[in-house]
C-alpha cells in the first residue's frame, strides 16, 4: 500500500471516529451516573439540524456548534425530566426520545435540504503536520477533531482524578448509599444527562457542519446507536471508547476504499458494509470479556430509577 493511501485512510478514519467519540463520551458520563439514555440518535439528529440551520443563517460554525450543544441539552432536559423527576422507565423514554428527535429534525430540516455550507477550514498543528505519513493523518484536522481528544482526556481525568468524578461514579454504583452519605443523587444525574445531551448535540453538529456540510434527513444514520454500543462494549472506559470508535471508523473507511477501488474481490458488498459493525463488536467483546473488569467499571445501578423518599 502506498504511504499516501495509508495516510488518507488514517485521516478518514479519525474523521469518521470523531462524532462517535464525542457522543459516546457524553453517554459514558451519563451512564456512569446510573442513567441509561437511549436517546442519543435523536439528540444527535436535533444537534445536527440546529447546528446546520444556525450556521446557514449566521455563517459561523462556532455558533453552529453552540446551537447543536444547546439543542442537545434541551433534548437531554426533556429526558431528564421524564426519567429522573417523574421516574419514567429509562429505556422507554430514551427510545421515544430517539424516535422523536429523528422525526422532529427531519421536519425542521425540510427548508434546508437543498442548501450547502462551505467546508470549514482545517487547522494544522504547527510543525507536526509536516511529519511524513502521520502528519496529514493526525495534525491537519478541523477543530472539533482536536476537541474530541481534549474531551477524552478531560473526561478521563474528571472520572478518575477529580472529586466530582468520584461522586458521579459513586452515584452510579450505589445511589442509595450516595444519598445516605449526603449527595443529591437526582441533581448529579441531571448534570450527567445534560452533559451527555450537550455532547451528543456537538457530535451531531460535527456531522452536519464539519464532516459533510449539508443537511439530509436521517444523516446521523445510526451513529447514535453505535455510540451507545461502544460505551457498553468499552466497559465504560474512555480509552476503550476511543479504540472502539477508531476501529469502527477504520473498518468503515477501509471497506469504502475497497469498494470504491474497483478491486475485483469476490465478496458481496453487503458483507463489506456490515464488516465495521461486526468487527467492532467482536473486538470489543474480546477485550472486555473479563468479568472482573466489567464488574469494576460498569455502573451497578444503570437504568434503575432512584427516589430519595423511598
Amino acid at each position: 500500500m502506498q504511504p499516501s493511501l495509508l495516510s488518507a485512510i488514517l485521516f478518514a478514519t479519525i474523521v469518521a471516529g470523531t462524532p462517535l467519540i464525542i457522543a459516546a463520551v457524553g453517554e459514558l458520563v451519563t451512564e456512569k451516573s446510573g442513567v441509561l439514555n437511549l436517546g442519543t440518535e435523536g439528540i444527535m439528529s436535533m444537534g445536527a439540524v440546529a447546528a446546520f440551520a444556525v450556521t446557514v443563517h449566521t455563517g459561523s460554525p462556532v455558533l453552529g456548534i453552540l446551537a447543536g450543544m444547546t439543542a442537545g441539552m434541551a433534548m437531554g432536559l426533556v429526558f431528564a425530566v421524564a426519567a429522573l423527576t417523574f421516574m419514567a422507565n429509562q429505556v422507554a423514554s430514551g427510545l421515544a426520545l430517539s424516535i422523536f428527535g429523528v422525526g422532529l429534525s427531519a421536519f425542521i430540516g425540510k427548508p434546508y435540504e437543498s442548501q450547502a455550507l462551505p467546508s470549514v477550514a482545517t487547522w494544522n498543528v504547527p510543525g507536526l503536520h509536516k511529519l511524513p505519513l502521520v502528519g496529514h493523518a493526525f495534525f491537519e484536522h478541523q477543530g472539533l477533531v482536536y476537541f474530541s481528544w481534549a474531551l477524552l482526556a478531560a473526561v478521563a481525568w474528571f472520572l478518575y482524578r477529580s472529586r466530582l468524578g468520584l461522586v458521579l461514579r459513586a452515584v452510579g454504583e450505589a445511589p442509595v448509599a450516595a444519598h445516605s452519605v449526603g449527595y443529591n443523587v437526582v441533581r448529579i444525574r441531571y448534570m450527567a444527562v445534560l452533559f451527555g445531551g450537550a455532547m451528543a448535540g456537538v457530535a451531531g453538529a460535527f456531522l452536519s457542519v464539519f464532516h459533510t456540510p449539508l443537511w439530509v434527513e436521517g444523516m446521523v444514520a445510526g451513529r447514535g446507536w453505535i455510540a451507545l454500543a461502544l460505551v457498553v462494549f468499552a466497559t465504560w472506559r474512555p480509552a476503550r471508547v476511543m479504540v472502539g470508535a477508531y476501529l469502527f471508523g477504520g473498518c468503515m473507511i477501509t471497506q469504502m476504499f475497497v469498494q470504491g477501488s474497483g478491486m475485483h474481490l469476490n465478496i458481496p458488498s453487503q458483507f463489506l458494509s456490515a464488516l465495521p459493525y461486526a468487527a467492532t463488536i467482536i473486538v470489543l467483546v474480546i477485550i472486555s470479556h473479563n468479568k472482573a473488569t466489567i464488574r469494576l467499571n460498569s455502573p451497578a445501578s444503570l437504568g434503575q430509577p432512584f427516589s430519595p423518599e423511598a
Binding site: L166, E173, A174, A177, A178, V181, R295, N297
Partner: peptide, 26 residues
C-alpha cells in the same frame, strides 16, 4: 451513622469511600 446495610461503594477503594464523606479538596 454506621448503617446496617453498609453504605459503601464496592468498586472504589477504602480511601475513596472515605473521601466521599469528607468535605473539601480531594
Amino acid at each position: 451513622m454506621v448503617f446496617q446495610h453498609f453504605s459503601l461503594f464496592e468498586t472504589l477503594t477504602v480511601a475513596q469511600n472515605v473521601a466521599l464523606a469528607v468535605p473539601g479538596r480531594l
